[in-house]
Design a protein around this nucleic acid. Structure first.
Lengths: 216, 216, 216, 216
DNA sequence: TATGAATGAGACTTCATTCAT
DNA sequence: CATGAATGAAGTCTCATTCAT
């Protein structure tokens, strides 16, 4: 195909992916507006003009970059196999762990703040966030909760609200510890976080003493 | 008195506040970068140059705008009077309600995404968010949790982590329902949200049956 | 006159002079364009608006500032009393000294580069420089040279050219040593400069041996 | 070849030179501050943005413009071939002529006042003037003077001071006649100027009669 | 007289986008 | 396909000048 390419040739096989990867890195470092096509091109090892062969505007490049990240993320969590005999708390501790790893992966910690920062001017991002991210997460977790309810293991709560609460618990740590880098000021042990989330989500903060005698 | 003066309004005592208010509106509609000083000036009913009499750069105006919002918010929640005889769950339901109202106020729903969108290029925002917002919230709630622990009402959890989890539960709804406007697609009853948060935070999702016999 | 002025009152007796003095300092530090009315006002201990009570524009202030300096300078050199019996070389050494002192005074070293920098956009400066400065200097010195020629002491040279050459000899040192501050890199003794100028101007650089036998 | 292309000229090999040439013209007409990038671009037949592909700021463009002029000038005078048998006065008359032509060339008459007008805010100009212009001129001429001294032809004068005096003699005419355009009011014959400079520089203004008997 | 808040035109500079090569 | 020189619209910030007090 290439007539004896002398050095390393930038693989032209998957230019779009090559570009969105570089774009994510740059967008994530500078933000959407502050990032320049020049920088992105440099990061991708190509030149400005070439980007326009694959993406018609900067906005489109941005949206596609975000979409490709979200796709990769949501592709990761359908694989929840649930064994009804397993201790439900244990199931969720395991799930919670996987969940936090996912939400703390660079894909998410980079893409999320970008979406939050730019959804105003790029309406597609709003759809993307609500449908592809929150929506799919909700649906996944809500399904588990409904299952638990059917089995009498889970209380009578709104499954979607409950699902989103679990997301929120993880989210706040991702946002604060990772995105805002609070981990350098108030370090928190990842295991302790997962453990506390799991415990509170399942048992609540009150002692059993209270929990056995109170009825809300 | 004479509102017929065609040009030139005279300083209405508090120009800075007048400007930051207009600025919040415009920033919140367009984002930091996309907002122009021209627009902000128009929104404030003055001219571009006048802004620079009070704020030396756009960045400074932005940071001060955010700071003033955060100040107003954090000034609102020290007023937590806690009666030890009151049912702790009831206390928190009440507090939770106030909390959600606060976090769902325009001040927060406008300021937060701006901070998340721009903290990269404006380091002061990071401090502001961590110190003035998360930090103060953590401290407040963590205090209550410690009190609960001392009274034997609350389990042995890390107070700061537990506090932040509560914040996260509210936060995800603010972000999703308000900021991203999911309330127009998946409306959720505010009371149901607060009720579910309170119940889960205190009792967990599992039924009492489970909760009395399991030990994590 | 002043009803018990409490502290030091800025003498309102001669505002224009007070302002041009401050203006010279600021203009000279920053240049005409880079100097701001604000700075000048501060340097004069008054406020911006006040300047406009005495000078209608920045350009006018500038021209008047320069004019006042040139006036003071040219007022200084008519006082050349010439005693025909005195050794002409000695006369000029004395004059040269006074001349250099004058040209090296802050008035000149500050005003000259300003004129050179801005004569393009302010035609009045060109007149000022040519008429008030060069013209008067030429006339003064040329007069002496004509006198010398009449007495047979001075060779047959064009008096105006010769006069201006003397100015040039001093000028280059003022410009280079003072204005451009070369004195910090290639310090030169003031006396040596005056001595060399005098000697060369009167005797030329060639040795007497040559000077007696060559005829140009 | 095709001069019908409406938009978009392709890089004519040496854009930088094309730009600095246009810049010199505009700067020299308006001064540094008053010149606009727009005007310069128009003068160069390109658009504003293009200038920034070659010069990062207006200040850099200015300094480079000056530097390129000075370089061309200083590249012109090393070619002083000196024949010891030639009459030294004749040598210098010849050199003086070349010197004046050089200093009176547009390169110098345009660049010098610009330097004098802006050295305050652009420190590099000071270096440029002192090192590239005055320094190199001094060195050149001082070399000749030292040679003359070694041959016993030149008196015991400080070579650097003496060299600079010669520069000053030319300089004042350039400044006054050319830069300030005094030639339209008091025209002076170029040959007369060179002749007078040469004569005075070599023989002084005093008559031989005096020169043979006085000893300073 | 003096003030200084307000004005608004104008400059530099950036950068997404185009297109001749 | 790829390039990168060129474009030009747009935005921030400055500052001389005005004028109500």
């Amino acid at each position: 195909m290439s007539n004896a390419c002398p050095k390393w040739k930038r693989q032209p096989e998957d230019r779009p992916a090559q570009i969105t990867e570089a774009a994510l890195a740059v967008f994530s470092r500078k933000g959407y507006q502050a990032a320049t096509m020049q920088e992105i091109a440099e990061a991708a090892g190509i030149t400005k003009g070439t980007i326009y062969l694959y993406f018609s505007t900067k906005a489109e490049l941005f949206v596609e970059t975000i979409r490709s990240q979200f796709e990769e993320v949501t592709n990761l969590f359908p694989a929840i196999d649930y064994d009804p005999n397993e201790d439900p708390e244990e199931v969720t501790r395991r799930l919670g762990r996987a969940f936090l790893d996912l939400l703390m992966s660079p894909k998410v910690t980079q893409a999320l703040p970008l979406v939050i920062g730019e959804y105003r001017n790029l309406p597609q991002l709003r759809e993307l966030y609500l449908d592809e991210f929150v929506g799919k997460l909700d649906m996944n977790v809500a399904g588990l909760i409904e299952l638990g309810k059917a089995l009498g293991r889970v209380r009578d709560v709104d499954p979607v609200i409950a699902a989103r609460l679990l997301l929120g618990m993880f989210f706040i740590f991702v946002l604060t510890q990772e995105v805002f880098d609070a981990k350098t000021r108030t370090p928190m042990d990842k295991d302790a976080i997962v453990e506390t989330i799991t415990r509170i989500y399942f048992r609540g903060v009150l002692t059993d003493e209270d929990s056995t005698c109170t009825d809300s």
